[in-house]
Structure formats: structure tokens, C-alpha cells
Amino acid sequence: MDLKLDIAGANDDKTWPLWSLSAAACFLLVLAFSGTSGSFFWDYHVYEKGLSCYLQGPNPYTCASGDFPFVYPPAFLKVFSVVDFPTAFAFLVLASAAGIAGVTLSLKSLTPYHRLAPCLILGFLIGGSGFASIQTGNISVFAHLLLVSLSYFLYTKRSAYTLAPHAIAIILFSAIKPYFLAYALLYLFLPRRSFFVFVGLLLSVAGIYLVQPALYPQLWAGFQGAIYNQIVQHGDAGLTIFGVFSRFGMGKFGFILHFLMMLLVILISAVFRYRHGQRSLQINSTSELFYFLAILILLNPRLMSYDFSVFAVCLYLSMILSSRGDGWVGLFLKIFPFLTILPLCLEGLSDIRVHSLTYYFLATYVLLFAAVACHWPLRTTWTKAPGSVAQEK
């Protein structure tokens, strides 16, 4: 036993420079070939402009229109006209960073840290999405990171202290963007289910969206018009199948196809779990938790780069926790980000333009397929290293 541990430690010592070098090279390439416009935090300035217009009297959905229009519901305006938005935004950024740092430190016992940290960086930088997310200053990336962190702590340390912040965060972010309500599904698959919390979240968010048209009809009409213009007229429909078909005027068909594909992914995952002896529907390992969170993020048909970056991080964490980065999985995790950054390099070096929709769309489904193959191989029974099952519970 001691000899096996010594060999594993020696192998880790040999591989960690390659993981670190891959992460550093990936970061430098993204830094060199992303964000050449010199503009930063443009979405943050959109929030500020929308709030400024609202406080001064004009309709924020027309006053703040432009290349980056204001497309957030009246609830956003009502809350942040009372709460200081810059302070709240700074708190969100710091809380999301602290949450991910806490998760990373907690996961050190499950996989070598010198693989885990570079793996996080590589996942976050796929296609330059992580850098682009931070550069835009979009609230969604920080909301996803915070909810992923809170979901992890809710799974590992179930108590009122972890449940309350998680539920409040879902309500708050769902009031801004409805697709964050998908995180409520976690309550149905935890080892200790919380059906009443799940129903409470659904009713709370439904109430918020039912009340707004009645109380603020003009603002709600402006919000609906802004959303329609953004998605339909400007073709800003995201990176999934829905986004691809929307560009050809077939958004409804794309939405149905996205819905059917998600059902297929869920069905395949359920069948593979059953074949490998996991008969219960509950999440029973940390790697499965991150896989589940990635699926929740992907449920959003209008997946944007700031959603994709956290989706990729979740799948990267899931894959390295289930494999420790050994075999084909480790090779894939190190190489895949460079393949997705190649279009950025081509544009920067040769002025060859590859639309981001193309490589994000491909990256989404290639990454998902790799994660499924990593978790539930078709021919061999899924096994873990000695003691890892006990560690992940």
C-alpha cells in the first residue's frame, strides 16, 4: 500500500509542471488575443445607465438603449434604486470570489491541489469565455459563481446557515434573470431533499413576475420590448442550438430542439447511472454535484459566454474529481482549452474571423459529451481509487 502511494505521489510530482504550464500558457494566449477593444465592464455601465435614467424620470428601456441596451425587469430597477448598486455589485464580486476560493480549498482532499487549481483556470478560460465574462462585468458570471459555491456548501454542510443564503440568492438572481431558478432543482436531488423549499422558491419567483406587470405596466411593457429587440431583431439568442436556429429565423424550432436535447442528456445520464449501480436519484458524490450544476446552467436556451464559462468550470471540476486527471481525461482537460482559443489567435495573428457562436456552440456539446464519457464509460464499470468514495460522501 505504501509503495502504491509513493508511486502515485511520484507521478503527481512529474505531472504538476505540465498542468501549471498549460494553465499559464492558456492564460497568456487569452490575455494576448482577447479584448483588444480596450473597453471594460460595459455591461456594468449599462446597469448604471438604466438606473440613472429610471431615477431621472425617462423610460430606462429607451433612454439606455444603444449597442448594449438595458434589458432587465422592473424588479431590478426597484431594488437597486433603493440599495446602492455599486456597493451591492462590489459585494457580489467579492462574495463570488471568496466562494470559489473556499470551494477550491475544500476540494484539496479529493484531488491533488497542483492539478485542481490549474484545472479551474483552464476550464474558466475555454474559448476565452472567463476573461470575456470578467471583461464585460456582466452580473450573471458572478451570480453563477456564487450560486455554484453556495450549492457546494449546501451539499457538503447541510444546515440553516447554508440553506438560507442559497435560497435567498436564487430568489434575488431569478428576479433579475428567470433562468437562475433552475438552481432550485438541486433541492430535489440532495441526499436530504427539501421539497417544501423547492415549492417555496417557485412560488416566490412566480409571485415576483406576476406582480410586476400589474404594479408597473409601463415599465413591464418596455422590458418586454427590450427583450424582444435584443433576441429577435438583434439575433442575440445565445450559444446553444436555440441561438444557431434563431439566426435563421427558426427560434421556436431551435427552442424545442434545445429542450429535446436536454431531455436526451438527462435520460442518457440517468440510464448510465442505473447501469453502474447508482439506483437512487440523489446526488451521491461531489463530482456528480458539479456535473448536475453544469446541466442546470445548460438548461438556459440563451446560454451566453458568461454562463458558458461557469458551465465549463463545473464540468472541469466534475471530470477531474472523478478521474484525478489521469488517462485520457487529463490529456483532454489540458488540450481542449487551446483548441477553443485557436480562433482568437487566428483573428489576432492573421485577421481570420471565426464567429464566437461557432466555437462556443461546438465547445458546449464536445465538453458535455466528454463529461458523460468520463463519468459513465460504456463498457467498464465506473470505479474510484481506494478511499475516494468515502472522501466524497
Rank of each mutant, 00 (worst) to 15 (best):
I168V: 15
N138E: 12
G207K: 06
F180G: 03
P178I: 15
L210K: 08
L186T: 01
N229R: 00
I176C: 02
F153Y: 05
S149P: 00
Q212D: 12
I139S: 03
Q218E: 15
Y216Q: 02
H234L: 15
L215I: 08
T162R: 10
A226K: 00
R193H: 11
L186H: 02
Y216E: 12
F173D: 03
G235C: 00
A167I: 11
D236L: 14
P213N: 12
Y228V: 07
F142V: 04
G137M: 02
S151G: 15
V205I: 15
P191D: 01
P191R: 01
F173R: 04
F198T: 07
L188T: 14
V232W: 03
P217C: 10
A214Q: 12
Y187G: 04
A160Y: 08
F153H: 01
P217F: 09
L145W: 06
H166S: 10
G222I: 00
V205A: 06
R193P: 00
G238M: 01
F142M: 06
H234I: 02
W220P: 13
L186N: 09
I139P: 06
H166A: 11
A143Y: 08
L146P: 02
A182C: 08
L154Y: 03
L201E: 00
A160G: 01
H166P: 02
G207R: 11
L186E: 07
S151H: 03
S204Q: 11
Y216A: 13
V148G: 06
F198A: 13
P178E: 03
Y152R: 05
F180Y: 13
A143I: 01
F173H: 04
F223K: 06
I176G: 04
Y152F: 13
L172D: 09
A182N: 15
A226C: 02
P213A: 10
G225Q: 08
L185Y: 11
L219C: 05
Q212E: 15
N229G: 05
Y228R: 14
